[in-house]
């Protein structure tokens, strides 16, 4: 019996060792803090990350190893690695999680890349005082998109509350904040704008007016394009992408303001290759790095961000946009409670 256990364990161990020996990527020799940048380990949830990695490698000769995944798994991976972090740089949308990582002393503070001088006032407003993370661009967590075939000019909404117009009864859509990443910031932004209880009342009124909840940007967009709904609110880069690709969709920025959803990049406080990490962040905020983010062929709708630096022009203009900067710590503290509230009171 014992022999059998030993045998099983032994075989498996032997197997792992053999495997380790012939693995295609040889084990890296620990985290030797070297002065010359060699290899950047880069975790990202951005559409343009691959283009950015390739261009940076070409420009600097520093090897980039990219792990691309959605924000949820990315954060889970970073947290699971807490004891022995492998990453140099992380890059994703939304400053709530970044602020929380900063609170846990996981991000490098006090670094100022030379290219930070490119920031516009919008960029500077999104930069935390301790420089733990850097905005690289921003979208609106939610703007209003309508089907131009179904909504005559007289009925086009101009504020959030215009969506309560009976004309839209049963034909309004948005994403589920429990599923879609950018949707919680949209909800939190409306709560900050209107006040929490007013905001809750607004979503309940929308529900009375026949609000339909879809899973993600893609689903809501499809419903809008095929006329299942006349009007929708979701991330503006996806709305603008549909408009640009020729769908009968138009975008309105409500005059009462839209929530900023910045893309933030940050350096690991214990980055295995600190020099490479610093060089990369500096490069991303440079003209070349910023231009690469706008490679729409490679990156898809994420390229339609609003720049936060003066070195590039936006691919699409956002006429009349009023930005609202939601306090990330405040929004993060309430995320679970408000998402649950939304699930129980609006989705069901």
């Amino acid at each position: 019996m014992t022999r059998r256990i030993l045998w099983t364990v032994g075989t498996t161990l032997a197997l792992s060792v053999i495997l380790a020996g012939c693995g295609s990527s040889p084990a890296t020799s620990g985290a030797s803090p070297s002065k010359t940048p060699q290899k950047l380990v880069f975790y990202s949830a951005q559409g343009y990350d691959q283009a950015e990695a390739t261009a940076f490698q070409k420009a600097t000769g520093i090897q980039v190893e990219l792990s691309d995944m959605s924000t949820g798994p990315l954060l889970a991976k970073v947290m699971a690695e807490k004891q022995n972090p492998q990453w140099d740089v992380i890059w994703f949308d939304g400053n709530g999680a970044m602020a929380s990582l900063d609170q846990q002393n996981m991000l490098l503070r006090g670094f100022t890349p030379s290219s930070a001088s490119n920031y516009t006032s919008l960029g500077l407003s999104l930069l935390p005082p301790d420089h733990a993370y850097f905005p690289t661009g921003t979208t609106a967590a939610g703007a209003i998109a309508y089907n131009t075939k179904l909504v005559p000019p007289s009925e086009v909404p101009h504020t959030w509350t215009d969506l309560l117009n009976p004309f839209f009864k049963g034909a309004i859509g948005m994403n589920n904040p429990a599923i879609s990443g950018p949707t919680y910031p949209l909800v939190a932004g409306i709560f900050q704008q209107m006040g929490v209880s007013q905001g809750m009342a607004f979503f309940q009124a929308l529900k009375k007016n026949g609000l339909q909840i879809f899973a993600t940007n893609g689903n809501t967009l499809q419903a809008l394009e095929n006329g299942t709904i006349k009007v929708a609110m979701f991330q503006d880069s996806a709305e603008l992408n549909a408009k640009l690709s020729g769908a009968s969709v138009s975008v309105v920025y409500p005059s009462d303001g839209v929530t900023l959803l910045p893309s933030d990049i940050a350096i690991n406080a214990k980055a295995p290759d600190m020099a490479a990490a610093k060089e990369f962040v500096t490069w991303v905020l440079s003209k070349q790095g910023q231009k690469t983010m706008q490679d729409i062929q490679a990156a898809g709708s994420d390229s339609l961000f609003q720049p936060v630096t003066s070195v590039i022009q936006p691919l699409v203009t956002r006429p009349g946009v009023v930005w609202i900067n939601v306090n990330p710590v405040w929004a993060g503290d309430h995320q679970q409670a408000w998402t649950t509230w939304f699930t129980n009171n609006v989705v069901r």
């Binding site: 792992s16 060792v17 380790a20 990527s25 084990a27 890296t28 699971a80 004891q83 022995n84 492998q86």
Partner: peptide
């Protein structure tokens, strides 16, 4: 991803 595994050459995470 235990730090000590690297010392014995078994840092398989990321491979």
């Amino acid at each position: 991803n235990q730090p000590w595994l690297a010392a014995v050459g078994l840092d398989l995470y990321g491979t």
